[in-house]
């Protein structure tokens, strides 16, 4: 996925000026079961939804896991880094 496509996706997610997104990126180390369980426990997703996001990360290289203000996204990215997942934040419309 190119940066341009990512940005378009962010723009679709929300058009609010102060909205940011947390993106989790694929890596060859993290286990599918582990990523699913982290998404379930941290983002409060059902097993089904958490697995769908995990597959998106694994197959498409990334997934948007949360949307909100920059400070909240920093908290989410910090939590993901705490779990050893690679996450980034960006303005959703960029």
């Amino acid at each position: 996925m190119t940066q341009e496509e990512l940005e378009r996706e962010g723009a679709v997610a929300t058009r609010t000026a102060d909205a940011w997104v947390t993106i989790v990126w694929n890596d060859p180390v993290n286990l599918m079961s582990y990523v699913t369980h982290v998404f379930q426990t941290y983002f409060g997703l059902s097993r089904h939804d958490a697995e769908a996001r995990m597959r998106e990360v694994h197959e498409h290289g990334r997934s948007v896991l949360s949307t909100g203000g920059r400070e909240k996204m920093e908290v989410d990215v910090q939590a993901m880094h705490g779990y050893g997942l690679w996450a980034t934040l960006q303005r959703s419309g960029e």
Binding site: Q3, E74, V77, Q78, H81, W86, A87, T88, L89, Q90
Partner: peptide, 18 residues
Amino acid sequence: PSASRDDRDVADEFRRLT
């Protein structure tokens, strides 16, 4: 890891805070 792929300010601020 870096919290931004292309925005140095976002990455630096995040690193400083966390």
